[in-house]
Design a protein around this nucleic acid. Structure first.
Lengths: 347, 347
DNA sequence: TTGTAGGCGTTATCAC
DNA sequence: GTGATAACGCCTACAA
C-alpha cells in the first residue's frame, strides 16, 4: 500500500509552469506575479497539496520533531509533563516522539541513539532509575544534539534543566508530618543515584534536623526501580516494620512508590494515619479518592513540560552556540489529606 | 545549532570509493569484494556511521513511523494501549508518534491531517467523544493511508478493528450488581455517539432484561466529554439523585467517569456500596486503593495495542490491497472489590 | 517574472 | 567488482 500525495511537480505539470515557480508561488515570493500565484494557490488548495515534510526535512537538515525519553508514560506525572511538552511543541511546529526507558539503562541508551541520528532535532529527557552514567547523552550532546533535562537530571551535561524544587517539597512534607506529632518518620526513596532522590532526601533530613531530630539511616530505604517492582517496595516496608522502634510515618518519594506503599500498608492491615501516617510524592489525579485520601507533594508537571520545551526549541533555533544555561526550579504544592492527619486518631 | 553526522559520501571520499560502492558494501551486497566490504564496514563502525533515516524515507516513500490518536494519554487505559503499540512497533522497526484529541473533533481532524501527508505510514486511532462523523478519516483512508481503529470505532471505514467485548463487559458488571441485590441500577455513559457507549449500554440493558427488569431511560445519563469535564458528571449525578426512586447502584462506562463519580459521591457523603453500589470501567492501577476499592471492568489494554499494531503493520507492508478485514474482540475482566459488595451493609 | 540546475543522503539501475 | 547516473520532493542561487 502506498499513500499517494500530490507534489509540486504535479502542480507544475498541470499548470505548465516550472517547479521552482510553483515552489516560490507557494511560499508567497514577491518575484511571482499575482496571477500565477493565484493560479498555483488555487490549484494547491483544490487538490489539497501538502508539502512533503520528509523532503523538507532532508533539504533543511532538520526534522521538526523532538524526542522524549521518560521512564514510563503510565504515570500521571509523566503523562502530564508530556501534555505540556506536546502543547508547546505543536504550537511551535514540532512533532513529538515519545519513548519509554521503563527505568532501564539499556533502553535509555537505545532510545537516545535511535532518536538522534538526525531523526530528531532535540531531546527532552528524564533519566532512568538504573542510569548511573550519561556518556551516551554526552556523546550526542557533543555532536550537537540539543538536549533539555527535566526531573531526574545530571550536571554532567552543560544544558538547560527544569526541575521541581525537590528539596523544598520534601522539606515541607516532612515538616508537616512533624507537626502532626510524628517522631519516627521513615523515607522510602527511589534509586539512590537519581538527582530527585538526593534532593528529596536532603530536604527530608534538613527538616528533621531543623526540628531537633537527627536522621537515622535505618529509616531510609531505597528502591532501585522507583516502585516499578512491587517486591522492592514490599521489602523496604518489611524492613521498616521490623525495626524495634517502628516508624510512625512514611514519606514516599515518587509516584509509583506512593501508590504501592499505600496499597501494601492496606494489605498488611496497618491503619493510616493512626499507626503510620503517609505523605507521598504523586501527581495522581485520584489521590483524593484513595483510602485514605493521600497527602501529596504535587509537582507542576504541565508547566515543567512546557518550560522544558520552550528551552529546547530556543536551543534548536539558536543562531549561534548557546553558552548560558538555565536551571529552572518550580515550586511544588503540598496537598494535605487524610493520610497524614492524626487529629482523628486516639492517642 | 546543527547536528553533524557522517554520510556515505564521507566514507566514499575517505576510502577513495564511489558512493554507490559504499552503499552496496554497507548493505552487504554480493557484488562487492570481501576486502572492500570489510574496509567500508570497519570505517563505518569506527566513525559511528548511521544511515540518515530521513533520506531513506524520502527514497523509499515511507517514514517507518506510525501515528496514534487517542483522546488523552493521561489515562491508564490509553497509556497501557500505547505501551502495547510501542512495544510491537519498535520491534517491527517503526517509530511511534502520539497525539491527543482531548475529546475534541477539531483536534482529531487536525491531528489526523498532520500525521498523514506522508509523514506517517499508518494510523491507529480511537475516536474523540465529540466525533460524530469520520469524513476526515475516510478521505485519508481512500488516499491509501492504512488505518486501524480501536476502542471507539466506526464501521464507516473498511479496515481492521480491535475492541474489548464491551457488550459482555457491561453485561457482567450489571449482572453482578443485580446479584448483589441492586434493583435500580443507573448507568452513566460517555458521549452517546461513541461505539463503546452504544455497546456497553446494550449489555447493561440486556442484563436487566434477562433478570426480568426493564431499563428506564431516566436512569441512563450521557456525558458528552466522557468525564473530562467534572461538571458534566456532577450534573448527571444530581439528576439521578433527584429521582423519586433513587438508584441503589451506578455502573459507569469509562475510566474518567468512574473516578470522577467515585470522587463526587464521596464529596456528597453518599456511602458506597451501602447507599449506592458502584461498578466502573477502569484500567487504573490504583483501583484497589480507592475508597472504597473499586469493582472494575478491566480491559486488556496492552494486548489491544499490540494487536492493533500487528494489524496495522500487516496493512502497511501488504504487497497487494487488503480486502478482508478483521474485527478482533477481546475479553474484559470483572475485578470485584468493595464498591459493589453489599454483604457488609445493614439492610 | 519565470526557468534551470544542483543538492540534501540514499538507493536502484545500468554501464564499464 | 566498481562506478556513474538518476531519482525521491523540495528549495534556492543563479541564469534567462
Amino acid at each position: 500500500m502506498k499513500f499517494e500525495a500530490i507534489t509540486i511537480k504535479d502542480i507544475a505539470k498541470a499548470l505548465n509552469l516550472s517547479v521552482s515557480t510553483v515552489s516560490k508561488a507557494l511560499r508567497g515570493s514577491h518575484e511571482i506575479s499575482g496571477e500565477t500565484k493565484q493560479a498555483v494557490l488555487n490549484y494547491a488548495r483544490e487538490n489539497n497539496y501538502k508539502p512533503n515534510p520528509i523532503a523538507q526535512s532532508l533539504k533543511r537538515g532538520q526534522s521538526k520533531s523532538i524526542g522524549i525519553i521518560v521512564c514510563n508514560i503510565d504515570n500521571n506525572f509523566f503523562s502530564q509533563v508530556i501534555n505540556g511538552i506536546e502543547s508547546v511543541a505543536r504550537h511551535k511546529g514540532y512533532n513529538v516522539i515519545i519513548t519509554q526507558s521503563r527505568e532501564s539503562y539499556e533502553k535509555e541508551v537505545a532510545n537516545s541513539e535511535h532518536l538522534s541520528s538526525r531523526s530528531v532535532d532535540g531531546l527532552i529527557i528524564s533519566l532512568a532509575a538504573e542510569t548511573r552514567q550519561v556518556d551516551h547523552l554526552i556523546k550526542l550532546h557533543r555532536k550537537g544534539l540539543p538536549i533539555v533535562l527535566f526531573d531526574r537530571i545530571t550536571d554532567e551535561i552543560p544544558t538547560h534543566r527544569v526541575i521541581a524544587n525537590n528539596y523544598k517539597g520534601a522539606y515541607e512534607a516532612t515538616r508537616h508530618l512533624l507537626e502532626q506529632g510524628c517522631r519516627r518518620i521513615a523515607h522510602i526513596a527511589s534509586s539512590d543515584n537519581l538527582s530527585i532522590t538526593r534532593e528529596r532526601l536532603e530536604g527530608y533530613k534538613q527538616a528533621l534536623k531543623d526540628a531537633g531530630h537527627k536522621s537515622d539511616e535505618r529509616y531510609i530505604k531505597f528502591c532501585p526501580h522507583s516502585g516499578m517492582i512491587r517486591e522492592e517496595t514490599q521489602q523496604a516496608l518489611n524492613e521498616l516494620l521490623q525495626l524495634t522502634e517502628r516508624p510512625d510515618a512514611i514519606f514516599t518519594a515518587s509516584d509509583r512508590l506512593s501508590t504501592t506503599t499505600l496499597s501494601l500498608l492496606r494489605v498488611m492491615q496497618i491503619s493510616i494515619p493512626c499507626e503510620i501516617a503517609l505523605v507521598g510524592y504523586t501527581n495522581s489525579i485520584s489521590a483524593d479518592i484513595f483510602n485514605p485520601s493521600l497527602t501529596s507533594v504535587v509537582q507542576p508537571a504541565l508547566e515543567m513540560g512546557q518550560q522544558a520545551t520552550e528551552l529546547l526549541v530556543s536551543l534548536i533555533e539558536a543562531r549561534r552556540p548557546v553558552t548560558q544555561f538555565e536551571k529552572r526550579v518550580l515550586d511544588t504544592e503540598l496537598q494535605i489529606r487524610d493520610s497524614s492527619l492524626k487529629k482523628n486518631c486516639n492517642p
